[in-house]
Amino acid sequence: MRSTWLQASLLLVWALLANGANAIDSERLEDPVLQQRYEQMTHELRCLVCQNETIADSNATLAADLRRELREMLKAGKSDAEIRAFLTERYGDFVLYLPPVTPRTWLLWAAPALLLLGGMVVAALVVLRRARTARADPAALEEEPENL
């Protein structure tokens, strides 16, 4: 009795996992290389109806239409850059989950590096100041310096 329950629940889990891997998109390309590019690109393109989903995840009609366009362009031998250009000409950069670096987006792209740099500068200043305090008065390090 017990093992039947276990088997049944394992089967259920397996079914859910297998299903989740490709829940929305049932279309496949014959060429495995194209299929791989297809999967990669559908995960980089935004569905504009349901804006926080990629076209791979979205069940919207528009997402299905865009997947169809994508498959046809891949079969026609278009490069990734050509396909991206086709879509941005029509829908704007917003369709890309990885927007190109432009005067409007460079700050967005540079933000992680800038924040890290800023943090390192602050950390260096703190360390230097503590070193100075320690040289002037070694006992001061026993307690947290007041002006930090």
Partner: peptide
Amino acid sequence: PEGRTAIDWGVYG
């Protein structure tokens, strides 16, 4: 009916 021209015009809703 297939939404092809709509894609050319960037229609999304």
